[in-house]
Amino acid sequence: MNMNALPDTAPGFDQPIAVLKHCHDRIRKQLATMQKLLPHLARHGADEQAQQAAQAVIKYFDKAAHLHHADEEENLVPMLQSVAQGEDAATLAELVPGILRDHDEMDAMWQQLHEELSAIADGSGQALSASAVEQFAQRYADHMEREETQIAPMAKRLFSAAQMAQLGEAMQVRRGILPAPAAGEAVAALRKDYGQDTLNEADVAADPFDQFNSWFEQALAAEVNEPNAMSVATVDADGKPTSRIVLIKQFDRRGFTWYTNYDSQKGRQLAANPHAALLFFWSELERQIRIEGIVERTSAEESDKYFNSRPLKSRLAAIASAQSAPIANREALEQHYDAVAKLAGDAPPRPDNWGGFRLTPQRIEFWQGRRSRFHDRIVYTLQPDGSWKHQRLQP
């Protein structure tokens, strides 16, 4: 094994695609080193030359290979997805899942080889699985060929000079060559292109409640994180808006219901101005639903039924907390809770200032993320006769 070969001159980051190709060439060299190690170990065991070779392979695949994968996963592929159209977009849709799967599976293959190479590197072992090496090398070879024959040419063809510079800068930041931008500056460059689904006028339900129910069931099936979480925006008597996240507890054709303290900030604002807006955002499905309408309190019977269905500690917390009112510290809050718990018993009644709000919608908009911020938006508006009309909005 030749351990004294001079390294190839690497291209500059002003040519990021060439840098990625150079990374592939270095991977091929490390794979070749592992393949040469197999007969060397059989003849010489874990001698000094074998130890040095094992150390070099470990150093590369433990660090540089992960940086290379991150370049592709976090920058190259998302940037391509944001600009590719037509056949290019279709090609990416076919290739990208396999590329990402390769990264995960090659990482898993590397873990077995890492253990064997580590023993060789410190002279404590000399076993290296020939089948594992060949499987790892072949998987990488096939993977790199797909990227070099399809992904790299597409990037060269589609990326502007500014996008090439952006890619090169991101790669330098990842390697510590350039400092990471401050969070306030970096936020402008955050990009996530959407493309999971579409939303067409011909496909949506005639009734927005049916459409909401369909999307909500899909969110449940997709195991979206807290699909029942929604933002509730209200305004005070002076027209100043506020918003917060609450959990929806019921929806049907009467409207969308949640429960709270009527003396809270939102309760007081709704008493002064009953107009409100709800927002569901399900990032896993690249969807949001905006709902606007008039809010009213649920009946005492409905509020009692829901209150009594809650866990005891939740009921006690609702009684103990004067929601939105200031308090000295957490200790005072917990002391108040303990005092309530001692007096309330196991079946505390619902306090009069706690209950449900129901928003009766007048406008419901369904939003599906699409590529290049060219999103699908279908809005339903309530008509004077009680029917619903829907139409497309421009993104």
Rank of each mutant, 00 (worst) to 15 (best):
R310P: 11
V235H: 11
A32N: 12
A222L: 01
A162I: 01
E147V: 05
G195C: 02
Q288A: 14
D207E: 13
A10C: 05
E331W: 04
A277V: 00
L38A: 10
A155G: 09
A165V: 09
I364H: 06
Q166W: 07
A221R: 07
S160W: 08
M1C: 01
Q35Y: 00
D207I: 12
N308P: 01
Q196I: 12
S131G: 01
M34E: 01
V235Q: 14
S131L: 08
P395V: 09
P16E: 07
A155F: 03
D207H: 14
D142S: 10
D236N: 15
R174N: 11
H103I: 09
R253P: 04
P326E: 09
A70K: 13
G195A: 06
P241Q: 07
R358W: 07
G12D: 14
R191Y: 05
G345A: 01
V57N: 03
S314N: 13
G293P: 06
K389H: 15
Q112T: 15
G356V: 05
L31C: 07
P274V: 02
R254E: 14
K305N: 15
H336G: 13
R146F: 06
Q112G: 09
T9Y: 04
T360Q: 14
D107M: 10
M144E: 11
L247A: 07
I327P: 02
S129Y: 03
